[in-house]
């Protein structure tokens, strides 16, 4: 007897293969592929309108793709959507809780709609309220909750059935830094318990902290993919900026440091910029040379490439980098 379900990549929690989705003339997704290995976190990064939410909606069976295939927790999302829904949790920006119900009632309702018995739904609701530090607010209507409490409840609602795969669509958008870091800890806890996570975000810091791998989506296409470190290394090494007291000094220093690849940018005439090719010894050599030539440095800055640099460079030049 053959299995009714398509086969998935070994150990993959999510496989998206050539997803295409058009809304009229708008190509929300234009052939996007990625995967999330079991127990790992994939960060999907991209500006607003890049197609992140469309991808999540396809993976959670809310939308059907025009083309391409997606397998979540070993199940094809188009062929067996109801089976997929049993194995996933969805939370984030667009998934919501009922403001007029209490936190406890929200979780119990989600439990019932996941076909838990009344008693099991109630027990699970209490467990989650405790785990997410919402016990004190459990019997208050959600409209009295703070933004951070709402997001925690929203995440709790996604976890009612202990799903092996969690999809978080911009889970911390609009939260204050303290609530954000709270939520990060919760997500890290889930991952350490073996949950696989796909996380969309606009915050590079969030992807940097939570994601094992990152996919950058821009205009419906995958513009870049790799670990945070790999993406950063694409932008080259750390750079050193040397500041001088005058334009003449800076020009002379740039000339003297030609062998180091130093440049004297037009826009900032007191500064000389050079790549840190050999680490700390480069800094020593540069300073010795300048000292020998009597060119006094006012200030030294080191610039690490950030994911922001990567993001901006990828999404502003059509993915050339």
């Amino acid at each position: 007897m053959s299995s009714p379900h398509p086969r998935s990549a070994a150990g993959a929690a999510i496989v998206a293969d050539g997803l295409v989705k058009h809304f009229g003339e708008v190509r929300a997704l234009d052939g996007v592929s990625f995967d999330v290995p079991s127990g790992r976190v994939l960060g999907v990064l991209g500006p607003n309108g890049a197609g992140k939410t469309t991808a999540v909606r396809i993976l959670t069976t809310i939308l059907r793709p025009d083309h391409g295939r997606a397998v979540v927790a070993g199940v094809d999302v188009v062929a067996h959507p109801q089976e997929v829904r049993r194995r996933i949790g969805l939370a984030g920006q667009y998934a919501a809780v009922d403001e007029n119900l209490t936190g406890r009632e929200n979780l119990a309702l989600v439990g019932r709609l996941n076909h838990l018995s009344r008693a099991d739904a109630a027990t699970r609701a209490s467990e989650l309220l405790g785990q997410f530090h919402l016990t004190d607010a459990a019997n208050r209507p959600v409209r009295t909750y703070s933004g951070g409490m709402r997001r925690r409840l929203d995440l709790a609602a996604a976890l009612v059935t202990h799903p092996p795969v969690l999809l978080l669509d911009e889970p911390t958008t609009g939260l204050d830094p303290a609530s954000r870091s709270d939520l990060w800890e919760v997500i890290e806890g889930l991952v350490s318990d073996g949950t696989s996570v796909l996380l969309t975000t606009q915050y590079l810091e969030e992807a940097d902290r939570l994601a094992d791998r990152i996919v950058v989506i821009d205009r419906g296409l995958v513009a870049a993919e790799g670990t945070a470190a790999e993406l950063k290394s694409r932008l080259g090494q750390t750079r050193v900026a040397l500041q001088f007291a005058s334009v003449d000094l800076a020009a002379a220093a740039a000339h003297a440091l030609g062998d180091f690849g130093a440049v004297h940018p037009d826009g900032d005439q007191h500064t000389v910029d050079l790549p840190l090719r050999g680490g700390a010894s480069t800094v020593r050599d540069v300073l010795n040379l300048l000292h020998a030539r009597d060119l006094e440095v006012g200030r030294i800055d080191l610039h690490e490439p950030t994911l922001d640099d990567v993001f901006i460079s990828i999404t502003s030049n059509g993915g050339r980098s």
Binding site: G11, S33, F34, G74, Q82, R86
Partner: peptide, 24 residues
């Protein structure tokens, strides 16, 4: 990674209750 989709691994069997019947 798309090549990986072809790799065979037994997938989860469907659970006993489909959740779509009239009773549900």
């Amino acid at each position: 990674m798309t090549a990986a989709t072809a790799m065979a691994l037994p997938s989860h069997p469907p659970m006993s209750e489909p959740g779509t019947g009239f009773r549900w």
